[in-house]
């Protein structure tokens, strides 16, 4: 019985990291907010490092509700695009070494977004994770959660619908 040799772990990691970086770097607004993504396998954690420009209420001080909303929306869109890209990447249909200069695949479009503000955002780093609860050919539903110091004390919860790109 013959078995193909598994790919070296570094090859797999660098391919996945390159694909994620390609997706994230293409969107100017992600750079404007300063959102970064940690990857463990296919799981993404979005990180919003604290900066003064994220403040909405200087008296408290607290993060701007709009900055929190934008962070949740960025996390949801990237999670959805990443989940779609992951299958092609693992099946070998997508080669990041060749796509680096290629046009980005069409991104999902937000249909609606609903946010629950549970606590005021503190002037420190924030984290978020999104879960695709339904992914169809046309529509997708995503839930997203943002926290700071304590994972079980969320700052905000979001729920969104997206229109999937055609093709």
């Amino acid at each position: 019985m013959t078995r193909s040799t598994p790919e070296p772990v570094q090859v797999v990691k660098s391919r996945r990291d390159a694909a994620l970086a390609w997706l994230v770097k293409a969107v100017p607004y992600i750079g404007f907010l300063g959102v970064q993504f940690d990857r463990r396998g296919d799981e993404l954690t979005a990180v919003l490092p604290f900066r003064e420009m994220l403040i909405g209420n200087p008296a408290l001080p607290a993060l701007h509700g709009g900055a929190t909303a934008a962070f949740l929306e960025v996390t949801a869109i990237i999670e959805l695009a990443w989940a779609t890209m992951w299958e092609d990447l693992e099946a070998g249909r997508l080669d990041p070494s060749r796509i680096a200069d290629a046009a980005l695949p069409n991104l999902p479009k937000t249909i609606d977004f609903s946010i629950d503000y549970l606590r005021s955002g503190l002037p420190r780093d924030a984290y978020a994770r999104a879960r695709v609860t339904r992914s169809g050919r046309r529509y997708a539903s995503v839930q997203v959660e943002c926290w700071q110091d304590n994972r079980n004390r969320p700052v905000a919860l979001g729920s969104a619908h997206f229109l999937m790109p055609e093709g």
Binding site: A26, V27, P28, Y29, H64, G66, A70, V74, N106, L107
Partner: peptide, 23 residues
């Protein structure tokens, strides 16, 4: 241009619109 969400079309990111609506 710093607030663009879709580089293919140059359309503003929904997050920037959300921040405007919240403010």
């Amino acid at each position: 241009a710093r607030l663009v969400g879709d580089p293919a079309t140059g359309v503003l990111h929904g997050g920037a619109i959300s921040a405007l609506i919240d403010t």
